[in-house]
């Protein structure tokens, strides 16, 4: 029966199961067990994305401060100078800088999103580059805003 000469290939497909030890070593070498989540770190685009969310929430809360300041500043000469006086205090400057920082970051990261809608920065490498650019540009703007506030 010549057809039997082709059987060795089939024996390669249907290999007998390994011994217990072989199975264990295969499991140990190929499957990551007990992942140490503390050792994982987010890629930069993930960090810029979560910061976009955080800054959005800060702005949402900050609108209350902005509306309060707007109302007071438009209430008359007195109100306007009261806002100026308020902005002299360290705490008010800090809050202003915080809201401005969130706003500037959200704006830069948002413009990145709009560029991605146009198909710019969607690949892995360009996406990483865009995330780096987002961080660099917003850090520069936030520092400038700090200089401007103080």
């Amino acid at each position: 029966m010549p057809i039997l000469t082709y059987q060795p290939s089939a024996s390669g497909l249907f290999r007998p199961r390994g011994t217990k030890r072989e199975c264990e070593s295969a499991v140990n070498s190929k499957r990551p067990v007990n992942l140490d989540l503390g050792k994982f770190h987010f890629p930069l685009p993930a960090i810029t994305s979560i910061l976009h969310r955080v800054s959005g929430i800060i702005i949402f809360v900050g609108v209350a401060f902005m509306l309060y300041g707007l109302q007071l500043s438009l209430s008359g000469e007195e109100g306007f100078s009261r806002v100026s006086d308020l902005l002299d205090s360290f705490l008010a400057k800090l809050i202003t800088w915080g809201i401005l920082s969130a706003l500037l970051y959200h704006l830069v990261a948002g413009i990145k999103h709009l560029l991605m809608d146009m198909g710019i920065g969607e690949e892995l490498e360009s996406g990483r580059l865009a995330a780096k650019a987002t961080v660099v540009i917003s850090v520069i703007l936030i520092l400038l805003a700090g200089v401007w506030v103080w």
Partner: peptide, 13 residues
């Protein structure tokens, strides 16, 4: 989200 983003970006700038 996009339409309002353009409005808010223009207003902010």
């Amino acid at each position: 989200q996009r339409v309002t983003a353009y409005v808010l970006a223009l207003y902010t700038v």
